[in-house]
């Protein structure tokens, strides 16, 4: 399906990979102080999935497991405000407000990252219908 890999792209993306990962987590964790947050950080993490596919197109991540994890995190995300916010827990203890926001940011980040990652992996490894014909 794909030709030989370009070593320039492989080396550059390999070099940038940990820094993009670090930036993603930074944006998620500092979301309530600085610009950014769960959605933005999650998108940065999801772009890693695609960068990985562009460089190294091997199907070794099971998108079913990723999808399951994403749905689990989504249920936690819905459960969090119900348990912590609507019962008045966070309002009663203002010191824990930052911790609550960080927790929500992390959940949103994982949710968005996994969700976009699943979409991308499904798209990338979609086998298509019918035989591809040679021109």
């Amino acid at each position: 399906m794909t030709g030989p890999e370009s070593s320039i792209i492989r080396v550059v993306v390999g070099l940038l990979y940990p820094f993009i990962l670090l930036l993603g987590f930074y944006v998620i964790i500092n979301g309530h102080y600085t610009p950014g947050g769960g959605f933005q950080g999650g998108s940065i993490l999801a772009s890693l999935f695609i960068a990985r596919y562009v460089v190294f197109p091997v199907e070794d991540i099971d998108s079913e497991i990723l999808h399951l994890a994403q749905r689990f995190v989504l249920s936690l995300l819905l459960l969090g405000p119900v348990v912590l916010l609507f019962t008045g827990g966070v309002h009663a203890h203002p010191d824990y407000r930052a911790a609550y926001l960080t927790l929500m940011d992390i959940l949103i980040g994982v949710q968005v990252g996994f969700g976009l990652g699943v979409a991308v992996l499904r798209f990338a490894f979609f086998k298509g219908v019918g035989e591809s014909w040679r021109f």
Binding site: S47, Y53, F123
Partner: peptide, 28 residues
């Protein structure tokens, strides 16, 4: 609007570009 700037930068020039490039891998 730095929040939107981050979202636009990440999604517009990162995610979508990579998605298009991976789609172009199929374009012979």
């Amino acid at each position: 609007a730095p929040e939107l700037a981050i979202a636009e930068g990440v999604i517009g020039s990162g995610l979508v570009t990579l998605l298009y490039l991976s789609a172009l891998k199929r374009y012979r």
